Amino acid sequence: MRSGARIEAFLEMMSAERGAAENTLLSYRRDLEDASAHMDGRLAEADPDAIRTYLDSIAAQGFAATSQARKLSAIRQFFRFLYAEGLRADDPTGTLDSPRKDRPLPKTMSEAATGRLLDRAALEAAEAGPGEALAAKRMHALVEVLYATGLRVSELVGLPVSVATRDERFFVVRGKGNKERMVPLSGKARIAMRVWLEERARHPKLAESSYLFPASSESGYLSRQVFGRDLKALAARAGIASAKISPHVLRHAFASHLLQNGADLRAVQQLLGHSDISTTQIYTHVLEERLLRLVNEHHPLAD
């Protein structure tokens, strides 16, 4: 049975036994026929080297890693079918590695844009009238604490009020895996938090809550969605495109700005609450830029 007939048999099995959709079958057909054409119609007889050569060729053509992975997946399933049906004595894809997908760099903000956002929050908190003070002072405390600590948004909005009554210099946060970590507060964050606690105490219903940022929600605290929406509105008032900001972007800004200014990657890992240093290594581009700048500025032979 030639490769074309075996591809047809594979597609028939995918349709009849697995109920694959028409678009899925068309995609498999395209990918398998493309691979077979590259191998002079002998895909069904290919060895690992032939398949690697094909994968190298599509990588050289500029196919994205996701497209390369999809094509390899189709080939893998094809050979598993041949092996299961006794049409091949081996599976040549067993030793092949999937194309490595580049992790996208995290979205972040410049120090100048972050400063504008915090300044706007401080201004609105200071100038708010009686009907606006609660929301404005809460937002000021939220953004100052988020930028000072790099907390996950779920950690931030769900903080118990007790964290703010122990020692105002630090928050002890319970994060993923129920692990505790200590994060320091900046001077501005401490002031914003003090003002918020005073405002919170003026409202009996809020003062009774066990949460630092209480709300009349099912959880009892401010929801991530409400904070995200209000943060975008604050950004717009500060002249920052709302599409470019979210609580997660501020967390990334915290980490990036620390590294840009000399912090150690391990220290940032601990502050972010990453259990594995490999998660924090998405920021290595910041370290590379810092080291390049260091060499260019201080090496005696630099231009």
Rank of each mutant, 00 (worst) to 15 (best):
F171E: 00
L159K: 08
V153W: 08
G150V: 06
F171T: 08
L156M: 04
R190P: 05
V163T: 01
W196Y: 15
L156H: 05
K176H: 13
N178R: 15
R152Q: 05
A201V: 12
N178Q: 15
D167P: 06
P160W: 06
T149F: 10
A148C: 07
E180K: 06
G175L: 12
I191A: 02
K176G: 11
S154H: 11
R174P: 02
A189S: 09
H140P: 01
R194M: 08
R181F: 14
A141Y: 05
R194L: 09
L185S: 12
S154K: 05
S154Y: 01
R166C: 00
F170N: 03
R181I: 11
S186A: 15
V163M: 07
S154E: 07
E168H: 08
E168T: 14
V143K: 01
V161D: 07
L185R: 14
L151T: 03
A189V: 09
L159C: 02
K179E: 08
L159M: 05
S154F: 07
E199W: 00
V163G: 02
H140Y: 03
S154I: 01
R200W: 07
H140W: 03
V172K: 04
M193H: 10
R152N: 07
G150I: 11
K179V: 13
L151C: 10
S154A: 11
V145D: 00
A148Y: 02
R174T: 15
R190G: 00
M193R: 13
R194V: 01
R194Q: 11
N178L: 14
L156N: 07
G158K: 11
W196K: 10
R181Q: 03
K188G: 08
E168M: 10
G187A: 15
V195G: 07
T165G: 05
A164V: 09
L151M: 15
V183Y: 08
R166I: 00
K188Q: 10
H140R: 05
P184Q: 10
R181A: 10
P160F: 09
A192G: 06
L197F: 06
R194H: 13
A192W: 09
G177H: 04
R200I: 08
M193C: 11
K176N: 14
R166K: 03
K179W: 12
V183G: 06
R169K: 07
R166S: 06
E198V: 13
V145S: 02
A141I: 04
R181H: 11
M193L: 15
K188I: 00
I191F: 00
I191T: 06
T149P: 04
V153S: 07
V183E: 03
R200E: 02
F171G: 06
L156I: 02
L156R: 09
V195M: 03
M182F: 02
R181P: 05
E199N: 03
L151H: 13
R166V: 07
A164F: 14
R174Y: 00
V161N: 08
L159W: 09
E168K: 13
V161W: 01
E144Q: 14
V143F: 09
L156E: 00
T149C: 15
A148M: 01
V145F: 04
V145A: 01
T149H: 11
G150M: 09
E199C: 06
V172E: 11
A189I: 06
V195L: 14
